[in-house]
Design a binder for these strands. Sequence first.
DNA 1: GTAGGGTTAG
Length: 623
Amino acid sequence: MASFDSLLQKCSSFSHIKQLQAHLITTGLFQFSPSRSKLLEICAISPSGNLNYATKIFNQIQTPFTNDWNAIIRGFARSNEPKNAIIYYKFMSCRPKKPDPLTCSFSLQACSKILAIFEAKQIHSQILRFGFTADILLQTTLLDAYAKSSDLDSAQKLFDEMSLRDLSTWNALIAGLAQGNQPKEALTLFKNMRLEGFRPNEVTVLGALSACSQLGALAEGETIHEYVKVEHLDMNVQVCNTLIDMYYKCGSVEKACDVFHTMRCNKSLVSWNTMIMGLAMHGDAYQALDLFNKIGSSGIQPDAVSYLSALCACNHAGLVSEGLELFKSMAVSGVTPNVKHFGSIVDLLGRAGRVEEAYQIIKLMPFVPDVVLWQSLLGACKTYGNIEMAELASRALVEMGSNSCGDFVLLSNVYAARERWDDVGRVREAMKNRAVKKIPGFSFIEAEGAIHKFVNGDQSHSNWREIYRKIDEIGFKIKSHGYAAETCFVLHDIGEEEKENALWYHSERLAVAYGLISTSDGKPIQVIKNLRICGDCHVVIKLISKIYSREVIVRDRARFHRFKDGSCSCGDYWFLAIVYGLLFFDLKVHNSSHCCRSNFENEETTCRMKSRELKVPWEGEEL
DNA sequence: GTAGGGTTAG
């Protein structure tokens, strides 16, 4: 008979596992043979195995070896119940066999998955106690656990303290920074890594490209793309997908299309979805829908994200009936709509002024409405001046614990539009009492090899005087083209007093002015803004694009605006509604069709409620 | 001997 170990290597079905287990039991080796751990591992992690059954085998063992613990912890760490891995780790700590670096590694992976920072810290202290600190792999796993649980300071500290780092260590921190809202730091680290002689691989460029996406750093992204081509990393589909994402988020949907159409590896569903979303964000709704309809011909079936991307295309172009049809067709194709699809429909209906229908959707849908849904409805109420519904949505948001400035501003906007100043004051009080924080608006522009950040009324840039002179010049020129920034409605002293020039020196305008100064003629100006673009800036930038014959691309938190020859790719869809709403309610509209001025920037915040709280049975106790 | 780093989303 073949040896037990060689049978283990061939073990490829659940029945094999049971036969081998039976063999161990009948020969009396079960309690003593080291091969048992391997069998347990196969049962716990291989596709032919069964984690429940592995647990049963484990429970039969009188004194588990460290490797038995490792197998079961590893199994749970990669299962849907990573919490159990930590529970087993805790059990193990009270038993004679002590954890080894692998045990810590698997348990940390479980911590990363459920963002169990408290437990990760305790395992960290055990790693120190056991003296496993020289193990680069383990240190990297620990670093990753910190980074994934948003404790980037600890991740960075660990990184700095490591005397030896390998490629994965750098990758873990770059990816961690990129995903943890520190894209600038991620890119700096990426550069430092190259200076230290490391050769970025697929994983590295994924992190770095993701950082570029967030920053809108097109030039930087292009450099990385060049590197990708030279190193043939574009044979990796994830790299290609991230390139598509990077290009469209950096404003160049054409280059995203280029990558998509010339991919040398097979396209995955994510490739399609990313491209569709890119087209949607750029307002190319018909191209997006066209691509959506072509997914099937590539032998892939669209999934929930594909539908969401296509719905998003309809949303951004105001294609209401197409969107509704698409939503209905989901049932036929067997893709179950989730809360985001319903959110999309609520937004679509709301933007089209069908606020009551949007509300009915929220009421009837089979999900508990989340913050974003109510925010969509509230946004629509503001646009169409629906006070009753706005109050309802605001109440829901408050009940859900929303403390977002944007939500309060929207409600006060609705009141202000009806000149209900007492209510406006009430909202203002509520904001004060709840210590609602205003999210400061800022804009980025990449120019002269650096990223320049502007806030409203910013005078910190070394060239600020020149920038302000440019803005004044713009003001002079656009007035001769009929621009008049008239006030439709003004929010009376809501929030902090703002300087008179706050509107005129909005961050996006400063960035565009700087772009005009610092980039050469004919080159498109690309600006990234953290909030929604202001309606007045939208008008001004349209005029700039015409007068200065410059294409300007602004990415705001919701979509792209491509200004060319006096018009914008969003078709003014998102702003026209404001005007219709005002006319409908017969409010004062002063001699301008493009007025939307408020003391606030558009803060339709979509801040998500993060469920990072995690309860584990022994919370508070030391492991 | 066994492990670590990763793409799309209202």
